[in-house]
Design a protein around this nucleic acid. Structure first.
Length: 583
RNA sequence: GCCCUUGUAGCUUAAUGGAUAGAGUACUUGUCUUCGGAACAAGUGAUGGGGGUUCGAUUCCCUCCAGGGGCACCA
């Protein structure tokens, strides 16, 4: 890699000043005019050498200049920094690399590792809301980042098919009646969600109802009531089927589904085996005093005084199932779980318990929390029915796009496809462009954006590039590397007086950004990168004519355009966003 | 009360301890005989308050203020 090469150069030159640097910092200046890489080495060692950093920077630069590799055209000291400028040949070489190896962003960060990403996690009998959309967008993007880094990825989904929420929904169904079977799966699921929130309200306000629901809850666990069993399996089936419809639209396909109901026995077994060594009896319940191991944690109940396992116990069951059950031929190297922020503290306690029982697993569990979707004025809660369902948001987003392309000359089939691809892009991008963890304020008007910093903007840039390439092909000046029969070396084509564009300066960074994003579990760096890239391309597009038979530089510009389209498509893929060929 | 977490332009937000804090939106003003205006170019505007560490702090530490989450049988 070129970074290592530059770092070594710097280390070598430092030896002239009797400095043995273990590691030197090398970063991209924010402003492209300050070079492609810069180092702060003069400021770091200025004090040690009792020299003014600016003077030292000049001296080091003089040393470096004695032996300049061909990739670097210029080295310049400025404000104590030393800036490195790549030569246009370096960029041309990079463009060729992209065209020849379309998967040039892949890395081997997790080569040969087995990684499970658990995400989305909606609960049967409850609506699929925007929070699940968030989790899905983040989890899918992480899955793809890990795939890009050589991991074998297992997409998993843990769904709560048992517990009080189910009892509330079933109470509602029994009380208010079953939906007509002439309705679609989605409509039936929506109805069930409504029953849940009505049942939930009554649970809070009506003592008699509360008793009835608690009774139903017990019967769900012990499967003693035939009618309830029927409603249960029907409702579970309907809501799960409705979720599948959404997953398909979102472009997610899970490899493994886990259900809470399956985690009860194994969880209980493990908790009991470790009582009283780790878990302790207290007021009839079995609890874990996490604060004994870490003062920042707190006590949580794992098995209630009624003998019922809580969510904590089921989570232990799930973790053990993942790591120890022999479910997979190769053991899991890493388990990533995404949930909303509310689960952060409780998950720390569960992971602490697991780490004590199985110390080796401690570093193999990673919990990522996303913020909550909230309204500007109040909290979103499926308990009160105060939510936006994922489905309605998708529908609205698609409808907006359809409106927008209504005058275009597309067939109905094309319109449908484009509005889906672009609508989903708008949603996913608005989630993924910001750092994972923060809340998202839901504003109906602004939640989906089509211009500026948006998914459709990226897609639009891509289709523009494709359209240019189409034209180049029609005019028979298509870039020869793409005709595999006659691959010419690109540096031959580099125009004599070529002024390097921003597009080139951004393109070569893509693999670094992908790696960085993966290391930190943060897809938003990809989103930011793509916006920067698209902006540079659109500016380039705006002030130069790319396809021009009379311009000797045209071939190189076309190559540049093709590279852009490859990287944009690949980057959007990492975000879980498809590209339309036209829009 | 204790623990965790977050405060950046009017709004939504970015910034591996680095250079003039970067975008979008909104507002103001420009660009089209060129390959697709969901575009391009320019302008106005921000680090909650106060200390500290550092050559250098949005970033690390302390404190205050303001949100959010969690703290025993919900998930």
């Amino acid at each position: 890699m070129i970074q290592e090469q530059i770092k070594n150069l710097i280390k070598e030159s430092l030896k002239n000043f009797k400095i043995e640097a273990k590691d030197v910092s090398l970063e991209h200046p924010v402003d492209l005019s300050m070079g492609d890489y810069s180092t702060n080495i003069a400021m770091v060692y200025g004090k040690e050498l009792k020299t003014n950093p600016k003077e030292l920077a000049e001296k080091i630069t003089a040393e470096l200049n004695k032996n300049l590799p061909k990739e670097i055209s210029k080295i310049e000291p400025k404000n104590g920094f030393i800036n490195f400028y790549f030569s246009k040949e370096f960029f041309a070489e990079n463009i060729r690399g992209i065209l020849e190896n379309k998967d040039f962003a892949k890395n081997n960060l997790y080569l040969g590792k087995k990684v499970m990403i658990e995400y989305t996690q909606p609960n049967p009998f409850k609506p699929f809301h925007i929070g699940h959309l968030m989790s899905n967008a983040i989890g899918e993007s992480l899955s793809r980042l890990f795939e890009k880094s050589g991991a074998e990825v297992i997409r998993a989904n843990y769904q709560g098919d048992i517990g009080l929420h189910v009892a509330k929904a079933i109470y509602g169904l029994l009380k208010f009646g079953m939906p007509s079977d002439t309705k679609t799966i989605e409509e039936q699921a929506e109805y069930i969600g409504g029953c849940y929130s009505r049942g939930s309200n009554l649970y809070e306000t009506d003592h008699t109802v509360k008793k009835q629901i608690d009774e139903i809850n017990k019967k769900i666990y012990d499967k003693s009531d035939k009618k309830i069993n029927e409603v249960y399996s029907w409702g579970r089936g309907v809501t799960l089927a409705a979720f599948e419809v959404i997953y398909k639209v979102l472009g997610t396909k899970f490899d493994k589904y886990f259900f809470e109901s399956e985690m009860i026995e194994i969880g209980k077994k493990i908790v009991k085996q470790n009582t009283p060594k780790i878990f302790e009896k207290s007021d009839g319940a079995i609890v874990f005093h996490a604060e004994k191991y870490d003062p920042k944690l707190h006590t949580r109940v794992f098995i209630s005084s009624q003998g019922l396992p809580t969510y904590e116990t089921k989570e232990i069951g799930l973790t053990m199932t993942k790591f120890k059950s022999g479910l997979f031929s190769k053991k899991l190297d890493l388990s990533v779980v995404t949930t909303a922020i509310e689960q952060a503290e409780y998950m720390k306690v569960v992971q602490k318990a697991v780490s004590i029982m199985y110390p080796k697993l401690e570093k193999r569990m990673k919990h990522i929390t996303h913020g909550m979707m909230r309204f500007a004025t109040s909290k979103m809660s499926s308990r009160t029915g105060n939510i936006i369902t994922g489905e309605s948001l998708i529908k609205n987003s698609k409808a907006e796009i359809e409106q927008k392309i209504t005058e275009r000359n597309f067939t109905n089939e094309e319109k449908k496809e484009i509005s889906e691809i672009v609508g989903i892009a708008a949603l996913k991008y608005s989630i993924l462009k910001q750092a994972v963890g923060g809340d998202i304020i839901y504003d109906f008007e602004k939640s989906i954006s089509f211009d500026g910093d948006s998914g459709p903007y990226l897609q639009y840039s891509y289709t523009r590039a494709k359209s240019v390439l189409e034209k180049a092909k029609n005019e028979n000046i298509y870039f020869p590397v793409l005709d595999s029969k006659n691959p010419k070396k690109l540096d031959v084509l580099l125009p004599a007086n070529w002024g390097t564009t921003e597009v080139e300066k951004i393109l070569y960074k893509f693999p670094e950004v992908v790696k960085y994003s993966t290391e930190r579990f943060e897809p938003h760096h990809i989103a930011n990168y793509l916006i920067e890239l698209a902006r540079a391309f659109n500016a380039f597009y705006g002030n130069t004519k790319i396809v021009d038979k009379d311009d000797p530089a045209s071939l190189y510009k076309i190559a540049l355009t093709e590279s852009f389209s490859i990287v944009m498509k690949d980057g959007l893929w990492l975000l879980g966003i498809k590209v339309p060929e036209k829009m």
